[in-house]
Design a protein around this nucleic acid. Structure first.
Lengths: 293, 293
DNA sequence: TTGCTTTTGTAACAAAAATTTCCATGCTGT
DNA sequence: ACAGCATGGAAATTTTTGTTACAAAAGCAA
């Protein structure tokens, strides 16, 4: 009866909506799928059934109740969802050729960015955020920042601001081969902040792993695909970076680190104010002695 | 022959490693898979083949070269990867269940950011935007990027992405004293992109002035206070960076440069796609010849 | 050009998958 | 207790899918 309404939603949403009306045995694979979303549903009926400890026909009855015409149909829906989340620049020609632009480009693009930010921040666990702030606020800890090929700009952004607020902030940069030096005296009292999004970089992952093994706290900023660094990270922030049809957007990651900075600044205002005034003074000294151009 | 070694890596890594040794037609589905990772590989052979415009057997030959015994084997490997990635801490948090409180710091801060972006983009002259895109799209022009003390992260962000899309992109970095070298052969056919926000930097302004005098097109990204660079700039984008209580936010600037990149990519999709595929190939070559760890 | 090798697609075939049928089991209400 | 009904699985059936053999096409050397 409510098919027309629920059929527009994601598979996960369809399941949640009908969970109450499922038989106990049907509920088992339904929950299994939610727990291993969407991989479980991409297997064969037999594999899925085995995973959920039910028989094949039960799977098929479940799929039918969810409103799919066949099991391949259901899998296609899962793949479509997945693809939408994962599109990379090379994936597809821009849509403007296919159907005329609705609203101009800038407005459309901006709306997508805003949606990304909103969705990301809404889903973000507040406690994790506060924990991260506390870690970064602790002046005794050393802070190391690391980014990937593209995300290094984010690491730099955070670095430039943190450096103003507190001492002992370092950026891991340059050739990969030189990174190890940072690992040398990295210990229990240090924090590594890593930015890593899809097309996760092996060298970044390895570095984070090493740092974690050495006892450092690892803070990870990643996309919905979740970098493998998460396995060793103490705090993980996963935000949306995918845009409808084009490149990825760092807007949400950027917003998050700015929020982090703002929070730090607000909470430890007295310390950072003193520090910034001192900086100001030093800069004045330096520039006063510079020769006039 | 080196199967034992490469089989421990991810499917994507296997592809990159062998990309050079594949036939042209086999390379097509390989790149298709990387672009739509891993969805393309989770489809049936026929679907995957259609997506890459090759025949079924070509897919199977590719899979065999990658070291898999069968297509289902290959799919299982993809699913395993996917599952591992999605099992991370994120799974703990319930996805779309309850919306977090409205009034907390993060939400408030995010709302301010979003307002900044919306207001900035709404006021932005579309013609200027398109003119900027056209300038940056012209492959004959050299592009120079420059940022200030904090805004350098924005310059780097744009630099890292432009570099993928087109040749002849350079970043002005390092000590101010070394910048002049860039001015040497800067001429009528070149473009200087400058980021400069309040507490405008003298050295940045001087550089831009010099570049403009030399005939270069100057593109300025600035805040509502408008950098003095505007006096010599050919296109000026002034956006909001002020936040209610604390630090400034680069979100609008960031959104704008991302929109630029997206627009460029969309308009000159064919060129940039070719370029990016070539990059992919080169990276594969480099990583294939890396020494064993 | 000619002949040889490599590459790629067509079509037939075998394997595996999804689907259906049908029967056993357990629960509910009289 | 026993009919009636909902539920779930084993096995048979049908459909789809992966696989292979083979021939056409393309590239290349002499």
């Amino acid at each position: 009866m409510d098919d027309s309404e629920s059929s527009s939603r994601s598979v996960a949403a369809r399941i949640r909506r009908r969970l109450g009306r499922l038989t106990p045995t049907e509920r088992r694979p339904a929950l299994t799928l939610l727990a291993n979303y969407p991989v479980a549903g991409l297997e064969t009926v037999a594999q899925f059934a085995a995973r959920a400890n039910v028989s094949g026909p039960t799977i098929l009855r479940l799929i039918a109740k969810l409103g799919f015409d066949s099991y391949p149909d259901f899998q296609q829906a899962l793949r479509d969802e997945l693809e939408l989340r994962l599109q990379t620049p090379l994936a597809k020609a821009p849509p403007e050729s296919s159907h005329p632009p609705q609203g101009d480009f800038l407005s459309t693009y901006t709306r997508a960015i805003i949606e990304n930010i909103e969705a990301s921040i809404a889903d973000l666990p507040r406690a994790e955020f506060e924990a991260a702030v506390a870690l970064l606020a602790d002046p005794r800890r050393r802070i190391l920042l690391l980014g990937g090929r593209f995300t290094s700009s984010l690491a730099i952004h955070l670095y430039l601001h943190l450096r103003e607020l507190r001492p002992r902030v370092q950026l891991v940069e340059g050739q990969t081969a030189t990174w190890v030096e940072h690992l040398l005296d990295l210990g229990r009292n240090d924090v590594l902040v890593v930015f890593d999004i899809r097309r996760f970089q092996e060298d970044v992952v390895l570095f984070a792993r090493e740092a974690a093994a050495g006892g450092a706290h690892v803070l990870l900023f990643t996309d919905t695909w979740v970098s493998p660094v998460a396995a060793v990270a103490h705090h993980v922030f996963s935000v949306r970076t995918t845009m409808p049809s084009s490149w990825e957007s760092f807007a949400a990651l950027s917003a998050l680190s700015e929020a982090l900075i703002a929070r730090l600044h607000a909470q430890h205002w007295k310390d950072s104010k003193r520090r910034m005034e001192k900086l100001e003074l030093l800069r004045a000294h330096l520039s006063a002695e510079e020769p006039r151009p």
